[in-house]
């Protein structure tokens, strides 16, 4: 079986796995990183969102071989030294988490946006999360939380 090396959550790792596995499968089953969720498996819900070289992508549409040599960030890599990331804190503050299934993907999409554009307008926040479906919150709390991050 091939060996694949990539940077995951700021650490280089090497895994041995078959080529017919998606990044999503390897994260959840091989590496025990279950923060990344599987919803639709066809690129519509965004529950499986991770950052690939700082860009939000669906990990259900990436084969493991495609991340060789790339940087991947999952929700588990966001907090530092046990402290939540500012986006995570604001999600808690605004009650932007209900069942939580969409939350990891939602937070990573927000994080990718803020990385590129530290003071987005509300419209831009909405656009950045169009690929993340939430069945619970009605989105308002989520948008409020992201806008609040920009206020510091």
């Amino acid at each position: 079986m091939p060996k694949i090396t990539f940077n995951l959550n700021n650490k280089d790792i090497t895994i041995t796995t078959a080529y017919n596995r998606r990044l999503l499968d390897v994260l959840r089953e091989e590496l025990g990183l279950t923060g990344t969720k599987e919803g639709c498996a066809i690129g519509e819900c965004g529950a499986c969102t991770v950052l690939l070289n700082d860009q939000a992508v669906n990990s259900c549409l990436l084969l493991i071989g495609q991340v060789e040599g790339q940087n991947v960030l999952t929700i588990e890599g966001l907090s530092t030294k046990g402290e939540l990331h500012p986006v995570q804190k604001k999600f808690l503050k605004h009650g932007a988490v209900q069942c939580g299934f969409c939350t990891p993907g939602m937070i990573l999409s927000a994080h990718a946006l803020l990385h590129k554009n530290p003071s987005p307008k509300e419209e831009e926040v909405k656009e950045a999360i169009t690929g993340n479906l939430c069945r619970c919150t009605g989105y308002k709390q989520i948008i409020d939380a992201v806008m609040d991050v920009t206020k510091g």
């Binding site: 690129g43 965004g46 860009q55 939000a56 669906n58 549409l61 999409s109 656009e127 690929g131």
Partner: peptide, 9 residues
């Protein structure tokens, strides 16, 4: 097209 995650790929 699609959404941001899709357009990125």
């Amino acid at each position: 097209v699609g959404n941001l995650q899709i357009r990125n790929r």
